[in-house]
Amino acid sequence: MKKPSLPLIGLLFALVSMPSHALLNVMACEPEWAALTSELGGDKVKVSSATTALQDPHRIEARPSLIARTRNADFLVCTGLELEVGWLPVLLQQSGNPKIAPGQAGNFEAGSFVQRLDIPSHVDRNDGDVHAAGNPHIQQNPHNIAQVAAALSKRLSGIDPANAGYYEARYKDFSVRWNAAMSKWEQQAASLKNVPVIEHHKNMEYVLQWLGMRQVGTLEPKPGVEPSAAHLTQLLAQLQRQPAKMVLRAAYQDERASQWLSERAHIPALALPFTVGGNDQAKDLFSFFDDTVQRLLEAAK
C-alpha cells in the first residue's frame, strides 16, 4: 500500500491543477435560479439547473451526473429552506468541492433573502412534510425574485470581481425591466384579489399572497401526503358549501387528483408552470410570470 500511494497522489494533483475555465460555472438547484443567474450573469457565466420544472424539487435522485456537475461548479444557487434536503447534501458531500461547501461564498441560498411564509410554530411529522424554515416555494412571487436578484448580483460580483461592473450593469437593467413587468402583472391581475382557490400541495402560497388570492383547501391532506379518496370527498363537500374558482397544481404534479375534483366541482383544473420551463410559454422569468398571470385570469373568468 505504501508504494503506490505517493505516485497516486502526484497523479491526483497533476490532474486537478488543470487550467480553470474562463466562464463562471454555475449550478442552480432549480430552473428559476438558473434563469435569474443567466439574466444577471449574461455571457460571463455558464449556467445549468440540477432539476427541471417537471421534477418535484423535494424528490430528486442524487444522480451521478449531478455529482459530476456539483464537482465542477464554481457557484451553487439554491433555494435552501430545506427544499433540497433529500439530495443536495449527498451532492455536496460527494463532490469534494470546497468552493460551494455550505457557508462559503460559492453557496448561495435564495431563501435567506425573502420574507418567508408558513413558518411552523412547532415541527412534527404528524403535520406532514413541513419545513421548519418556512415554505420554500418562494419563486412564484416576483418581489422575491427582485430581492434575490439584488443579493445574487452582489454575490456574483464578490465571487468574480473582475466582472463586477458587468454584473452591476446587468442587474440595473434587469431591475428596471423587472419593476416595470411587476407593475404590469399587478395591474393585469387586480381582478384576482380574493379569488378562492384549491391547490394540490402547499406550494402556491407565494403567488397567492402576491395576488391576494385565497387558498381554501389542499388536495394533499397534509403536506407531502398523497391525496386520498376520503380527503378529496371531504373537499368536494366543502366546495359545495363554499365554492372555489379553480384547482391549482404545479406542472410536475400528477393531474389525476385535480381532474377528479375539477369534474365533480365543475371548476377548472389549472396547471401553472410553477417555474421556468414548466410549459412551452414559460421560457424565461418574464414569460413565466406572464403565463402564470394569464392562466390565472383565464381560469378565474
Binding site: 411564509l117 418556512g134 430581492q147
Partner: peptide, 13 residues
Amino acid sequence: LPQTAAAPPSATR
C-alpha cells in the same frame, strides 16, 4: 398578518 419572518442571514437551521 400572514406569518412571515424578517429575512435573517441564516435561513436554514
